[in-house]
Design a protein around this nucleic acid. Structure first.
Length: 204
DNA sequence: TATGCGATATTCT
DNA sequence: GAATATCGCATAG
């Protein structure tokens, strides 16, 4: 843990070219990578341990019925933030996938907090490390993600970006996705086996 | 540990 | 009106 914290300061931004275009491949690729969030002089970061892919044409994806005002950023080039609000309570942070004009993305479902844990605790109103960002709504709350970050380039220096892995990822497992009612059988949820920071069923 | 339910905003029918 | 890529609290076992 101490090593991971130290290395988090040396994380390199992921280039757009390094990202797989395919949504499922991107979802797997992002496991173990870092999310960095800057607020003023504070910096928070976490290690991605759980993702879900929403490929083009998937009936459970927001892009399925075509481009609208609310989902238009999902149709951007890969590596941009798609943020939406749901259930009246939660924001969700996604990374866009595929080529420009194609609506696909990857939902970030959980991170292992690395830097800025004190700030995350304040934003989440809890000091339970394991619960800070276990689940997509909690993740967004811990990093203070809202609609203002919709469309942000995650491959550029800014308030929110993606970085390289701080350590090796032991083993990745894929299962069905959580909380959807269409195409429920597709194995498009990815998580790091054994991580206590993974939400929902961490077996399968 | 598992299941159930209310809260609450935005979009779509 | 209904549905929704959820959370937190309650209750039961």
């Amino acid at each position: 843990m101490q090593t991971a914290f130290h290395l988090a300061h040396e994380v390199q931004r992921l280039s757009r070219a390094s990202l797989p275009s395919d949504a499922a491949e991107l979802a797997r690729y992002l496991i173990g990578k870092t999310v960095v969030r800057k607020i003023g002089r504070s910096r928070m970061s976490g290690r991605i341990v759980e993702t879900e892919a929403y490929p083009s044409g998937d009936r459970s994806g927001h892009a399925y019925r075509g481009r609208t005002v609310s989902n238009q950023t999902l149709f951007m080039d890969k590596g941009f933030a798609y943020v939406y609000f749901i259930y009246g309570t939660s924001y969700m942070l996604n990374v866009t996938a595929e080529e420009p004009g194609v609506g696909a993305g990857v939902l970030l479902r959980a991170i292992e907090p690395l830097e800025g844990i004190n700030l995350m605790e304040r934003l989440r109103k809890t000091d339970e490390l394991r619960d800070l960002a276990r689940g997509p709504g909690r993740l967004a709350a811990a990093l203070q993600i809202d609609k203002r970050l919709d469309g942000v380039d995650l491959c550029a220096d800014g308030l929110l970006w993606l970085g390289s892995a701080v350590r090796e990822t032991a083993y990745i497992r894929k299962t069905v996705r959580v909380g959807i009612s269409h195409e429920v059988g597709r194995l498009l949820r990815f998580f790091e086996v054994g991580s206590p920071f993974v939400s929902a069923p961490s077996t399968g």
